[in-house]
Design a protein around this nucleic acid. Structure first.
Length: 272
DNA sequence: AATGCAGGCAACCGCCGCCAT
DNA sequence: TATGGCGGCGGTTGCCTGCAT
């Protein structure tokens, strides 16, 4: 019968994703979800096929992704599960919260396979065996190791040390002005900063405190900013806290600057 | 300092299974 | 029941980076 191609080949971009494309995809999914991957890129304004978007989201941008090196416990779990399940990477990934099948597959091929091969030459190490419930419960601390690749992709160095919300508030008071978003002619009020360098750094504390000052989530007053100034979040801060890709993902000032100054575009998107 | 090489990893490709029609 | 669309999965590729020479 002949299978239809997964996507239109004409004019669709391939290869590494840019920070701008990531922003568009993340923002769109936070606003509208991903009910239909095929239709998503067109609606979001991305020149990518749906499959590529899905892969980028599930393997890299999803909020619950755990970045960083695998712990020895995780590696042992993978080896154990691989013995039982074979190359069923998605099944193995399901037992390792925050890890993707692609990541596990890569780790297997680059590290574990070699290690096992080496170990077979010498007496095999005693491995603890985990039953399903133990595996399910396994929760490894987020490894905050810097992802050097992300830096090369333009996300910049990890933000550290990071100031408290109050630091940011005062920074916002002094460096921001109340204005109308400028990227397109929209009327959503938002914080404007003149350059990425002026944009205050923020950490998880920042979002927590924003949330506590505004439970509604979609937009919030920024304490310390000029009276009446409203910060239009690109997406719900609730989605950002804790498990955000950006808490472990190496975002720099420019990234956040772009996110915030794009809020105008998102306002328009919401009217699609 | 320049070049070559190997390893790591993000992304692509093609197949499969499920589901709606 | 047959067909086609879609999402998911596993295998593979090729680019990028770091290290050795």
């Amino acid at each position: 019968m002949g299978r239809a191609p997964c996507c239109e080949k004409m004019g669709l971009k391939k290869g590494p994703w840019t920070p701008e494309e990531d922003q568009i995809l993340v923002n769109y999914i936070h606003l509208y979800g991903h009910g239909n991957w095929r239709a998503l890129p067109k609606q979001a304004g991305l020149l990518r096929c749906g499959k590529s978007c899905r892969l980028r989201w599930t393997n890299y941008l999803r909020p619950d992704i755990k970045r960083g090196n695998f712990t020895s416990e995780e590696e042992e779990t993978i080896i154990e599960l691989h013995e039982r399940l074979g190359n069923r990477w998605s099944a193995i990934a399901a037992k390792l919260p925050g890890r993707t099948d692609n990541e596990i597959k890569n780790v297997w091929h680059t590290h574990l396979k070699k290690r096992l091969k080496h170990n077979h030459a010498t007496p095999p190490p005693k491995r603890h065996s985990l039953d399903a419930s133990q595996v399910e419960k396994q929760q490894n601390p987020i490894n905050s190791a810097t992802n050097s690749r992300s830096e090369s992709l333009g996300y910049g160095p990890v933000l550290s040390p990071q100031p408290s919300f109050s630091d940011i508030s005062s920074a916002a008071t002094t460096t921001t002005t109340t204005t109308t978003a400028t990227m397109s002619d929209i009327t959503t009020p938002c914080i404007k900063v003149d350059s990425p360098e002026d944009f205050p750094e923020m950490d998880e504390n920042f979002w927590s405190e924003v949330l506590s000052s505004n439970k509604s989530g979609a937009a919030g007053d920024l304490p310390g900013a000029a009276s009446g100034t409203q910060l239009q979040f690109p997406f719900s801060p609730r989605a950002v806290i804790g498990s955000s890709p950006y808490s472990t993902y190496d975002m720099d000032m420019e990234f956040w600057y772009n996110i915030f100054t794009r809020s105008g575009e998102l306002h328009e998107l919401s009217e699609i």
